[in-house]
Design a protein around this nucleic acid. Structure first.
Lengths: 227, 227
DNA sequence: GATGGCAGTGACAAACTTGTCACAACGCTA
DNA sequence: TAGCGTTGTGACAAGTTTGTCACTGCCATC
């Protein structure tokens, strides 16, 4: 489950972000200022840093610069936050090595979306075209799926669905999101199709079917079995 | 069509390799010694270098070292060749940044296989999960295929087949290879299945169907249309 | 230009895939 | 624990996909 470090001087914002991200299955760390943020990034090696631009003391730009210079943090993706929508800052941030940029106010949904996009991007580059989580291995190149080294036939719908679910382990995918990405359905389409396919997937995964957790009223999530 | 630089002091070997690689649709360059090899690598920026380890003058190890140091050649993948199967050299080669290693004598088939594997690996990292060639775009993440920005539905078999064909444009894929990779058939299975699927693919590609060339008695190959 | 081998094609039936529905089961809240 | 909304499930039928086959057409070689 990816860990995300939140660096912001306003406690309210930190807590709000942390809550939203935790709801999605991410683990969170918090730092109240730039220096502390740098220290935690280096120590805990989070998978992503959400970094506020405007902070008293060491600001976001400086933190970004420092992180990019230090070997232990140079590759950690950074999502910049700022209150203003100025283009100059955006460009400065991106040039300094931030991976994305978001202006306040933002919706929690947008935050989660951007976080996931960055993680997907960086994980895809690192992991190549094979996703391995727990006993699952999903080979996008050959469209093959393995459970504990045993190949299991998936239909292309099942493949897409499982792909979405394990792409970022632990994060919850909303029904609407799955319906849109896998089926191309527009929001709020009323259908039992997703449920049925989840059932079929679980059946094919046998005892590991339990790894696909239902998140009531929200969607589904992949979670490694605790055995 | 990828270009491959062959660096070997023996003319016979160079020509043999060049012939086999050309037969697969690659373009080839040849250099008779290490220094010349370095120069050509820097100038022509080939997609891969086949590098002999044992050469009079500047040997393969040194060339490899130099190439990795120079910016223009540091990222070009290297396939090392050597007459002996010594583990020490293998390790030395791989540590120096060679991408793969092959001991003589080797079959032309093995050569082509390794070359293709390296290219696939490096191209996959560079290009991410979307393959774009000519008017085709194949999105492995979402299992979608576009022809000139228009989405075209492919069945999963068609997707796999097309993927194999355009993965390394211009290189010929043998019938046996396609049957094995796409269908899991063992070698020399006698079937018209492949032909039928090629027909269906061509039909879906419309006027671009011609991009899939028949290589009589061998297999098929993707080739960009000359318009 | 005959011959043999290889590839293209249309038709077809079997198998598979998929969305829907009705109903059962479940979980949360009052 | 009753009620309500959400999810799980088995069955089913329509649609899609797939491999095979017989036949046609093409190409290279003799």
């Amino acid at each position: 489950m990816p860990t995300i470090l939140i660096v912001d001087d306003e406690q309210d914002i930190r807590e709000l972000l942390a809550m939203k991200l935790q709801k999605e299955g991410f683990e969170t760390l918090e730092a109240p200022d730039g220096l502390e943020g740098e220290k935690m990034a280096s120590e805990h090696q989070p998978d992503l840093v959400v970094l506020d631009l405007m902070m008293p003391g060491k600001d976001g730009i400086s933190v970004c610069k420092s992180m990019r210079k230090e070997a232990r943090t140079s590759k950690i993706p950074i999502l910049m936050l700022t209150a203003r929508g100025g283009m100059d800052e955006k460009i400065a941030g991106l040039e300094l090595g931030a991976d994305d940029y978001m202006t306040k106010p933002f919706s929690p949904k947008e935050l989660v979306l951007r976080v996931r996009n960055i993680l997907r991007r960086t994980m895809a580059v690192e992991g190549g075209s094979v996703i391995e989580v727990g006993p699952f291995r999903l080979d996008k190149n050959n469209l093959k799926f393995y459970l504990n080294a045993e190949e299991i036939d998936l239909t292309s719908t099942e493949f897409k669905l499982l792909h979405m679910l394990i792409e970022i382990p632990g994060s919850t995918r909303e029904r609407d999101e799955l319906l849109e990405k896998v089926w191309g359905y527009s929001n709020q389409t009323q259908t039992r199709t997703l449920d049925t396919h989840i059932k079929r997937l679980r059946a094919k995964l046998g005892e590991y079917g339990a790894c696909i957790e239902t998140v009531r009223s929200v969607g589904y999530r992949y979670k490694e079995s605790s055995n």
